[in-house]
């Protein structure tokens, strides 16, 4: 715990879901390990020298921009995050902005950055940015959204009154966990857009890689039949391997 504790659970699970990568890959891609106990030496205690403090921003942890912002030797001020028990904001949610020049306006969440308690609302809370400025070219001005804190800057919209409301997680009679608006006690369903990842908009729209992917039918086909055999016994029987030799007596210590 002391060795790896500081690396545990830094990237939010929504981020990993969005990336569509295995968790181990995301971790590997942003970690900066300077030294590690070499593999194959069980006599040495497992230890590693790694960077402890990373600055998470709107750049996703597996990207080159993230690596650039966290180059070895760069140290930035600590960011204090308000602890949140249950995350309630998802991509595609309708939210109302509670601060800034767009206070009172409603928009759709386009990005969720759990590592900083941020959401980005489409077209709201924007500033102007000049892109591609050159000696001969004045550049193009674009609008870019600034992130908003989920704890204080945005609130979900109540589906009945269409006004900002606080939200609570509750269970339905069927046992499903749902978000309930505290203003009208109506369920706020999680939008379909929430399952969007880098690779596909929704699970149904994923196009199979014909050569490499197993088809869904083959993956869900039930071929298991319970037998009173271990795996090895079953495989040996299947392959017609007969083993009649009786192992010599052995002692475990």
């Amino acid at each position: 715990m002391r060795i790896y504790g500081y690396l545990a659970k830094k990237v939010g699970d929504l981020t990993i879901k969005y990336s569509n990568f295995p968790e181990s890959y995301v971790k590997k891609s942003y970690e900066q390990v300077y030294w590690k106990t070499p593999a194959g030496y069980p006599q040495y205690k497992k230890a590693q020298v790694a960077r402890k403090k990373y600055r998470f921003t709107t750049n996703r942890p597996w990207t080159g921009q993230f690596r650039q912002q966290n180059e070895p030797g760069t140290l930035r001020k600590k960011v204090f995050l308000e602890p949140i028990r249950d995350w309630t904001f998802f991509r595609g949610d309708r939210v109302e902005v509670m601060v800034g020049k767009d206070k009172g306006k409603q928009g759709i969440v386009s990005q969720v950055i759990q590592e900083r308690n941020w959401v980005i609302v489409e077209g709201l809370n924007t500033h102007l940015r000049v892109v591609g400025k050159d000696k001969n070219f004045p550049g193009i001005t674009i609008q870019s959204e600034a992130p908003l804190l989920v704890t204080s800057d945005v609130k979900l919209v109540d589906p009945e009154s269409l006004k900002a409301t606080d939200v609570e997680w509750r269970y339905t009679e069927e046992g499903d966990k749902v978000r309930v608006s505290l203003a009208s006690s109506r369920i706020i369903p999680i939008p379909k857009t929430a399952e969007e990842t880098i690779d596909y908009k929704s699970k149904e729209l994923y196009i199979d890689n014909i050569e490499k992917d197993t088809t869904a039918d083959a993956a869900t086909k039930i071929t298991f039949a319970p037998k009173l055999r271990t795996f090895e016994m079953d495989i040996m029987e299947e392959m017609g391997i007969k083993e009649d030799r009786v192992p010599a007596k052995s002692y475990w210590y």
């Binding site: 869900t220 039930i222 071929t223 795996f231 079953d234 495989i235």
Partner: peptide
Amino acid sequence: RVGRAWKLDELRLKSNTDLH
């Protein structure tokens, strides 16, 4: 681009030969 890894619950449906 390829799909995700096999999950435990999917592998539990498969016979020993299939797993092998």
